[in-house]
Every structure is written in C-alpha cells, then in structure tokens.
Amino acid sequence: MRIQTPEEAFAEDLDRSLRPRTLADFVGQDGLKAQLQVSLEAAKARGEALDHVLLAGPPGLGKTSLAQILAAEMGVPFVQTAAPALERKADIAAFLSALEPRSVFFVDELHRLSRALEETFYPAMEDLQLPITLGQGAGARVTNLPLPPFTLVGATTRAGLLTTPLRDRFGIQHRLEPYDGPELTAIVHRSAHILGCEVQEAGASAIARRSRGTPRVANRLLKRVRDFAEVRGRGVVDAATADAALDLLQIDDLGLDRLDREILSAVCSKFGGGPVGLSTLAVTVGEEQDTIEDVYEPYLLQCGFLMRTPRGRVATAGAYAHLGLEAPEDPALF
C-alpha cells in the first residue's frame, strides 16, 4: 500500500473540509434535497434504516458528499468503498457482515461492479441475508448469513450501464444535475470562508462562470486563484485577480481548458469540421480515447460545440465561433 506524503494528506483533509456536512449546508439540487429530507425524517421516526439510494450524474456534483450527509443526518456509521475494489464475493461479505445496524454503505462507481458480484447484493438488499457456501464439491452446502438493516448508497456516472434488476432494488433514485451560476457562486463563497480567503462577489462570479457547472471544479479553481492572489495580488480575490489567474491556467470564459480547445481545433482545422473518428482524434491530440470520451467530450457536447454522429465527431458553428475561426459554408455540417 502506498503511503501518502504529508502534502497529499493535507490536500485530502482540505478537500474533505470543503464538503458540506448537512443537507442545510448543501447548496443546490433543491428538489432532490426536499425529497431526501422527507425520506430521512420518515426513516428516523420509524427507527428504521433509510431505503437504498441510487445517486447518478456526472462527476463532481456531490454524490459522495450526499452519501456522507445521509449517514450524518441518520446518526449512523458511514462505510465507503468503490466497485473496482470489490473483486470477490468474500470482499462484499467482509463489508456487509461488519456493518452496524442502519449503517450507510457507500459504493462508488457502481456500474463497474461485475455481474457475478452484483447478484450477491440482491438477497442482501431485499432480504438482509447473504448466501455463504460452506465446504467444497459434493459436500458443499449454502447457508444464509443474517445481516443487520443497512442502507446501500450507490453512486454512478453511467446509470445506463446498470442492469435493470440492480437499479430496481433501489427504493430512492435521483439524478444530480449541473449547477447554475448563482449556486456555484454561493459554493465559492462558502469554500472561501472555510479556506480563510477573502473573495469579492465579482471574483466569485468569475470563478463560477468558468467552473463547468461543477462544484468540484469550482473548489479546485478557487484554490488556484487564492494562490495567485496571495503571490501576485493583494490576497483578495476580485474580478481582475480571478480573470488573471484563470487566464494563466489557460481556462477561458466558458471553462474550456487547453485540451478542450485542442480537441475543437483539431476537428475544425485539421479535419475540416469532421466527421472524425474517436481513435483518430485521440492520436491527433495525444490523449487516450477513454479520457476524451469520459472527461472532455461531455462538456463540449453540453456547450453545443461537438456532435456525435455514426461517422464520427462533427464540430458545430458554435465551435468555430468560440475559436474565432470562419465556419465552412457546407450547411450539411450544421
């Protein structure tokens, strides 16, 4: 096991301190919070475990934070793992058998759970029993290990990859949506207060505008802008300081970074607006296909700069305008 350096441990503690601790502290997702509040109060009134919860949505929107909040609001232990770390049925059995009554068991990236292991969760979620095989060969027999009441909270960025039997066993299902400007501005102010950083309204708005609708990105940019303000400014994050810091990071007014623009530029300039295949595009910009598809493409699609077609990726008129290029006259591309 790799040991964290003091700097890495400090950064992890800092990120953890920025997470909201209660539903009241959680900014945005108002409809989701209202529904969860009802479920929480009902479960506490009956003295039962909260029903199993499935949280879906793009990375960085607060799925892990919400899982921790559910445990805190219920006043129960929080146990966390990730689906890729569950390699054998024994791994699941070890976690589930050690849970205290009404605990919250959080599994991140649930869509990466293998089908064989997924079926292990079925009787645990429905009947609070875990089938265990004792012995081998003809003398083997199956016994059911009773489990305490618990809440499985699954988080996924790709809900479409979950099987229907697993998805249907979650009594509470929610999808988190990207945040708007005022919500991200409020998050920046809250995080700045925790970090002990003075942020003016215009500075917070500048950071929020370039945060791609994602609180995790907003917090990351805030920390980099804070560094810039302390080294090259007066220690106060105003609009000019935020813009200068983010320009230094090569993040433009829509939140696109250098590689985002390289992808758009490659499609527009080198391939005439497309269509271009993902593998060709990956080689052109020097990045892995999975990284382009999972990290960069979703936001470019949200911005309306790229289109996915059966023949490949195609740049839109908006992409040309954003890059300051003249769009081709062929209307078929648009």
Rank of each mutant, 00 (worst) to 15 (best):
I69F: 02
E118A: 05
I92G: 09
Y122A: 09
A83V: 03
T163G: 14
L96S: 01
P131A: 11
V76L: 14
R141K: 15
Q80H: 11
A93N: 11
Q129A: 13
G137V: 01
E119V: 12
L86F: 13
V153K: 07
Q129H: 12
Q129S: 09
L130A: 07
V76K: 14
S103H: 08
A71W: 09
L55C: 04
G47K: 04
L110W: 02
K63A: 03
A56T: 15
I92K: 11
T156C: 05
V107D: 04
F106M: 08
A49T: 02
L110E: 09
E48T: 07
V79Q: 13
M74E: 10
L161D: 13
E73K: 05
G154C: 05
P165F: 06
S114Y: 03
S103F: 06
T164A: 13
F121G: 06
N144W: 11
Q129C: 06
D91C: 09
T163R: 08
L54I: 10
A116P: 00
V104G: 04
R88L: 07
L55W: 09
L113G: 08
H111M: 14
A124E: 00
A94M: 10
R88K: 15
E100A: 14
L130I: 01
T164Q: 13
L130S: 02
T133H: 11
L110T: 00
D51A: 15
E73N: 12
L145D: 00
R46I: 00
E100Q: 06
P146Q: 14
D91I: 06
F106T: 04
I132K: 09
R141V: 02
G135C: 10
G135N: 05
F105Q: 00
A93P: 01
V104C: 10
T64P: 01
L134M: 12
L147K: 02
P165R: 06
G154P: 08
E126C: 06
E118W: 08
A98T: 13
E73S: 12
P149W: 09
R88I: 01
R102M: 13
K89M: 07
A85I: 04
T164M: 09
G160F: 03
G137D: 03
I92E: 07
D127P: 05
A90Q: 15
A71F: 04
A67C: 11
L152N: 11
P58E: 11
A116K: 10
L86W: 03
P148M: 12
E126I: 07
K89C: 00
T64S: 13
K89A: 15
F95N: 00
L54Y: 06
S65C: 06
L130Q: 01
L152M: 13
E48F: 03
E87Y: 03
